[in-house]
Amino acid sequence: MLDDTDRRLMRHLLADPGLATAALAERAGITTATCWRRLERLTAAGVIRGQHAVIDWRALGYAVEVSLRFTLDKTDPRAFDEFIAAARLVPEVIAIETFLGRVDVRLNVIARDMGHWTEVYRQQILALPHIAEVEALMLVSTIKNTEGLPL
């Protein structure tokens, strides 16, 4: 489905999503019209789902990130849905992921500082429904964080 030109185009798009179509075409070594058609085709096929801004939350004054792993009390069949619905309402939750295995749900939570983290954890996180067990992992450093793909 993808040829070398598509891969080259997507590599450049991932590296700089804000490029205008003409600049993207130039970097990929194709005409602007061809670039536009290929982007349209890749979008229609669902390969490209959109372009978005990546905002560094640290630049906005958030200094703490914690990954919380939850095991839910699954005696209630609505446990997952109710937990996730409530977690979505916590503004400091930046990611929600579900798993198979011992861990049911992982939340990534950011805070301005440790005082803010304590407040969010005690008042909002611990108030989430159906928690059987929670484990917190404090982020120390990010070694690799890329949205790039091996194209």
Rank of each mutant, 00 (worst) to 15 (best):
D73Y: 11
W57H: 13
V66N: 10
G115R: 12
Q124C: 11
D16Y: 02
D56F: 00
T146Y: 01
E147I: 01
L128D: 02
W117A: 03
H130Q: 00
P150I: 06
T31V: 06
I30P: 00
L128A: 09
I48E: 00
L14Y: 04
E82I: 09
I125D: 02
H52V: 13
V134T: 14
T75S: 11
T21L: 07
I84H: 04
A53S: 10
A53L: 11
L72F: 02
D81T: 14
A22T: 15
R8W: 03
G18P: 02
E97A: 12
P91Y: 01
R7A: 08
E82H: 12
A127K: 10
R58F: 02
W36E: 13
R41G: 08
Y62K: 00
S67G: 12
D4R: 07
A87D: 14
H12C: 01
L2V: 01
A59V: 08
E119G: 01
Y121G: 01
A23E: 14
I110H: 08
D6Y: 02
V103K: 14
G115W: 00
T146N: 01
L68C: 11
E133P: 08
R88N: 10
R41P: 04
R88F: 01
W36G: 05
L39F: 07
F99C: 11
L24I: 03
T118F: 03
S141V: 10
L151F: 05
A87Q: 07
R11G: 06
I48D: 06
G115A: 10
I96P: 10
L72G: 06
L107M: 05
F83R: 04
R41K: 15
T43Y: 10
L24P: 05
R27A: 15
L149R: 13
L72W: 11
D73P: 03
T146C: 00
T21Y: 09
V103C: 13
R69Q: 09
V47D: 10
T5K: 15
W36A: 12
A85C: 06
I30T: 14
N108P: 00
L19P: 04
S141H: 09
L128T: 04
R58M: 08
P150A: 14
Q124K: 15
S67Y: 11
F80Y: 15
L89S: 14
G101H: 12
I143D: 02
V105K: 06
A25N: 11
L9M: 07
A45T: 07
I48G: 02
V134D: 01
E26T: 08
K74E: 13
I110S: 00
T43F: 09
D3R: 03
V66W: 00
T142E: 12
Q51S: 08
L9I: 13
N145E: 07
M10A: 10
V66K: 06
V66Y: 04
A45H: 05
I96D: 11
T75P: 00
L42K: 05
M1A: 14
E135Y: 04
R88E: 15
I55F: 03
I94L: 10
E135C: 09
R69F: 12
A85L: 13
A86D: 13
I48C: 03
L60N: 03
L2P: 01
T5M: 12
L137I: 01
I84W: 05
T142S: 06
L137G: 05
V140T: 12
A25V: 09
Q124A: 14
